[in-house]
């Protein structure tokens, strides 16, 4: 998907940092990069000014989510050295004009949409970071279980005992041979979110913790696993709606010949 984005950089400009930053912007609900999701329609940089055109799955995507992504794009690109102005475009989104005017001016959502209530976007962002944490943890738990780890073992694991070896998770405990425990990418996504939420990431910290940083006992783990499973399934269900809309949009973009009959 990234390769398909039309990019216009000044001659000789190394845009890798910029793309890296852009790739860090997530659709909060899908918990995936907007770049990988195909939401970035084009990217242009001229004289220190970046212009990013977004295309969301429909023009009726919720205003607060659209705002949040647009704002995140602006913040992400402003953090790149040499970029001093960012303009985000939202195409035919139903509130494109208001969102663009406010985001590009650095104004807050509450300021731009007072009728939407005083609920700040920061709270929404945090809610989805936390849901994403649980969803990522569920995938890790599933991987560990599939690799044969018992609840007691999982609960006893410390961060310092897990590492990445090639594409797999390697579990090393004193006096035991290393064990392969699942996908490295799943572990990395879980650890990244742990950092973002400022949860304890020291080597002694338990691998599996709740949102307050507390570890689980083996008999509490099953109930927790079932609870996070519902979070993951709910996110995936909403995600599949968005994916369905995106697939139609891609067909439309491909022209009438590509359209479903």
């Amino acid at each position: 998907m990234r390769d398909a984005v039309p990019i216009e950089f000044p001659a000789g400009y190394d845009g890798s940092v910029l793309l890296e930053q852009l790739a860090r912007v997530l659709d909060p609900e899908l918990d995936e990069s907007i770049l990988d999701l195909g939401f970035v329609r084009s990217l242009r940089l001229r004289f220190g000014q970046a212009e990013v055109a977004l295309r969301l799955p429909t023009s009726w995507c919720a205003v607060n989510f659209a705002y949040l992504m647009a704002e995140d794009v602006r913040r992400a690109l402003l953090s790149v050295e040499g970029i001093d102005r960012v303009t985000v475009r939202l195409g035919d989104h139903c509130a494109a004009a208001e969102i663009e005017a406010a985001v590009n001016d650095g104004r807050s959502f509450a300021d731009a949409f007072p009728a939407e209530g005083a609920r700040s976007l920061a709270a929404l962002r945090l809610t989805f970071l936390r849901k994403g944490f649980l969803s990522r943890q569920e995938r890790l738990l599933r991987d560990l279980r599939d690799a044969g780890c018992t609840p007691t073992w999982i609960c006893a694991l410390r961060l310092g005992e897990v590492s990445v070896q090639d594409d797999a998770i390697a579990i090393r405990q004193p006096g035991c041979a290393p064990v392969a425990g699942g996908s490295a990418a799943i572990l990395q996504r879980y650890l990244e979110r742990r950092v973002e939420l400022a949860l304890d990431c020291s080597p002694e910290a338990p691998l599996i913790i709740d949102l307050e940083g507390a570890p689980f006992s083996a008999d509490r783990l099953q109930a927790h696993y079932e609870a996070v499973r519902t979070v993951r399934v709910a996110l995936e269900a909403n995600g599949s709606f968005c994916q369905a809309l995106l697939s139609v949009q891609r067909l439309d973009a491909a022209g009438p010949s590509g359209h479903a009959k």
Binding site: Q243, A244, L245, S247, V248, Q249, A260
Partner: peptide
């Protein structure tokens, strides 16, 4: 938008 849901 609704048609896109229907199609998808």
């Amino acid at each position: 938008c609704f048609h896109a849901f229907h199609s998808g």
